[in-house]
Amino acid sequence: MATRILETTQDNKDQQEDLNKLKNMLLKSNYPLKEIEKLIQQTCQEFKSNKNKSNDKNDDTTGQIKDKNNNEFICSLTLPYAPGMEVLKRRLEKKLKIKLFFSYPYKLQLQFNQSLKVPSKSVLYQIPCSCKQTYVGQTKVGIDNRMKQHSKTINDNENNSNSEMVKHFQEKKFHCLFDTNDAFIIEEEKDYWKRRTKEAIYSIISESVNTHDEINEAWTPILHKAKHQIQRKIESARENYNKYKRTKT
């Protein structure tokens, strides 16, 4: 759990706060203090050492990522795993120079206390429409502030609005509506360019009404393979976020 905190939190202050929360949680579970502090300190030292070794091995003077065969990649991206994606992974990495990693939907981390991680305001979200269409977006101001912006735009209902949601229900002759109260967070992502890429992927998978960045056609087969996994991830995110909202109320 300490390793996971170090991997997911970049800020030193946030790391220390999360490690303190972990220590307190373990103390309440009657783990010995000396053993907790010893293992956390050991984990931090090993993580720092492995990180330095990884930087020396993978990063050249331009900051690009390199694999064991010394191939350069402009960035990295994580997608849900689906059987048969290994061949597509190699093709994608060779053509687009993007290092692709696989993630798995059910992890041990999901069973632990989610309060260890401070929620990020940089998120990808989805808003369902009453006609079964969807709107996918990304923001760095937090979902609550972003929904206030969307609500104002929808309520203003300007004829020349640039909002895809307003255009959508004007085209549908106001027979449907995007309700921002039904919005949910798909996932958090602090990196701006990764958010843009993921926004495009989720938009394609959900066939959403929003405009998004173009995706290179080399992604088509891998998105086709991962479609059902990504759809399940979105549905799971919706259910979890609704549960979270109910606990707050």
Rank of each mutant, 00 (worst) to 15 (best):
T134Y: 11
N160Q: 11
D144L: 08
E187I: 07
S161R: 11
Y192F: 10
N155R: 13
K198I: 02
N157G: 06
K190N: 14
K167F: 03
K172A: 12
I143P: 02
A200Y: 01
T134C: 10
N155A: 14
H150Q: 10
T153A: 12
K198W: 02
R195Q: 14
I201S: 01
V141Y: 01
I185P: 03
H150S: 02
F169N: 13
D179N: 15
R146C: 08
T197Y: 04
D182N: 15
L177T: 11
E199S: 03
A183C: 06
L177D: 09
G142L: 11
N160P: 02
E164L: 03
T197A: 10
E199R: 07
K190M: 04
N145V: 06
T180I: 04
Q149M: 14
V166Y: 08
D156C: 02
E188F: 05
S163G: 09
E158L: 15
V141H: 02
D144T: 08
N162G: 15
A183W: 00
V166L: 07
C176V: 11
Q149H: 13
A183L: 00
Q149G: 07
N160D: 15
H175N: 15
T139H: 00
R195H: 05
D156K: 10
K140Q: 12
D182I: 00
S163M: 08
M165D: 04
F169E: 07
V141A: 03
Y202C: 04
Y202M: 09
K190F: 05
Q133M: 11
S151E: 11
E158A: 12
T197S: 05
D182P: 01
H150V: 11
T134V: 07
K152I: 09
I186P: 06
K190C: 06
H150T: 05
